[in-house]
Design a protein around this nucleic acid. Structure first.
Length: 414
RNA sequence: GUGGGCGUAGCUCAGCUGGUAGAGCUCCUGGUUGUGGUCCAGGCGGUCGCGGGUUCGAGUCCCGUCGCUCACCCCA
């Protein structure tokens, strides 16, 4: 179409000015909400050693098995475009010795992530996430805080009516006995299960809970529930988190079948869903990952956090995002001096006035039309004489020179 | 990786049973009020995704291919 064959790669997109402004505003609100919670900004590289994700995210996950953009650098090292942000944060926690800082360490990030999947509504190969992580404490209040901050962020972003689902997966050790029981149950009903679920009975039996497959669903309806088998400490922890959410007045549904697709989750898991997104209904979700830092070679360190999809937030948002500020326009009439007009624009900008001038060879009428479309508040007409025209009232007044023109414009802005 | 829908001007789309390309919006020019937002006139802009086939003739039929999109899967 148009000039040629070059297009953005599949599953990626350009952010045009209109959307860029919304993103900017969303980031501003994110900064405010998470900053109030004591979270500080953090950035990590767009790619990392492949091993970080293999070990952190888990070999049995779809992400590691088939969705990573992995490549070799010129030194033969295997690198991977980051598919998620929690493992990198944990890597940084260990690398920079953050366990020596006052705990918990609270960080948030914003940026691009990459997963090689077929794109569809709300799902891209390069997408953006806001993430929030708190490491170094297993206090239930940290779980509750994390959930509440995501709820507050969604609220601030104009995402209304999202439903919150929560569950607990117990600890890794505490979960083992249950997993054995579940594997036994799955083997007993193997004939009715989907191939995919059968393949993962050994590696990741929990996955069976969120299968769409008809037969699998009926089998799972009668399956033993992890929530009913939690170790006493885990059950207590979960009850405490729920109590805190109740106190905060945040509505949620306990969903025993909620299973997240990453291996590192322990205890609390949660997810916000919106019905405005099509099939990919999750706007954001996360949970606790008490074993991850240790898995990556650090000290035994608990952690909780979440990630939310920026594109999905914007899709689900009902906010009327603020419009771009109105500029002032400098038009040139017959007999006008271009250099004088340019100088006026320069001075206006120095004085803090957003201003533009004629730069496309338009007629005066064309310039006025353009200024009108650009929603200019006022137009300076530089001809034999100089005038300021108020574009809302149509009122037009002569100006003695550039200095006075700047003074008037500065006055308009306030 | 699998399946459905779709690919005509920058954007949104029309084009009936094949006859040789249209509208609205945008953009530019002119008129209507010297100098806009209404209205009118005109102009710029298209290898009809690409390749092959059927036909005197294909945007319109057939095959292939690429792309977009939605869904499965999975997740943000």
């Amino acid at each position: 179409m148009g000039t040629g064959e070059l297009k953005v790669p599949r599953g990626t997109f350009d952010v045009l000015p209109e959307d860029a402004l919304k993103r900017r505003e969303l980031q501003r609100r994110t900064w405010a909400v998470l900053g109030r919670g004591g979270y500080r900004p953090f950035e990590s590289p767009a790619f990392e050693d492949t091993e970080l994700f293999e070990r952190g995210v888990g070999e049995s996950t779809d992400i590691v098995r088939k969705e990573m953009f992995t490549f070799e650098d010129q030194g033969g090292r295997s690198l991977t475009l980051r598919p998620e942000g929690t493992a990198p944060v944990c890597r940084a926690y260990v690398e920079h010795g953050m366990h020596k800082l006052p705990q918990p360490v609270k960080l948030w990030y914003w940026g691009p992530f990459f997963r090689h999947e077929r794109a569809q509504a709300g799902r891209y190969r390069q997408f953006s996430q806001i993430g929030c992580e708190a490491l170094g404490s297993d206090e239930p209040s940290l779980d509750a805080e994390s959930v509440l901050l995501l709820a507050e962020l969604l609220e601030a972003a104009g995402v209304r009516g999202a439903t919150l689902k929560i569950a607990s997966l117990g600890t890794r050790e505490g979960r083992e006995a249950y997993l054995e029981e579940l594997r036994g149950y799955l083997h007993d009903h193997e004939a009715d299960l989907s191939q995919d679920v059968r393949d993962r009975i050994a590696s990741n039996p929990l996955r069976a809970f969120d299968a769409g497959h008809e037969g699998t669903r009926t089998v799972m309806a009668g399956a033993p529930r992890l929530l009913d088998r939690l170790a006493p400490e885990d059950a207590e922890h979960f009850a405490e988190v729920r109590a805190l959410l109740d106190d905060a007045g945040l509505a949620y549904v306990v969903d025993p079948t909620l299973v997240r697709g990453l291996d590192y989750y322990t205890r609390t898991v949660f997810e916000f869903e919106s019905d405005k997104l099509g099939a990919q209904s999750g706007v954001g979700g996360g949970g606790r990952y008490d074993g991850l830092v240790e898995e990556l070679g650090g000290p035994r360190t608990p952690g909780v956090g979440w990630a939310a999809g920026i594109e999905r937030i914007l899709l689900a948002s009902e906010t009327r995002w603020p419009a771009a500020p109105r500029p002032v326009f400098v038009a040139i009439d017959d007999g006008g001096n271009r250099r004088e007009a340019f100088r006026l624009v320069t001075l206006l900008r120095e004085a803090g006035v957003r201003s533009e001038m004629e730069q496309a060879g338009r007629s005066l009428k064309g310039q006025m039309k353009h200024a009108s479309r650009a929603e200019a508040r006022a137009v300076a007409i530089v001809g034999q004489e100089m005038h300021w025209r108020d574009m809302d009232t149509g009122e037009q007044r002569p100006v003695t020179g550039i200095q006075e023109a700047v003074r008037i414009a500065v006055g308009l802005a306030t």
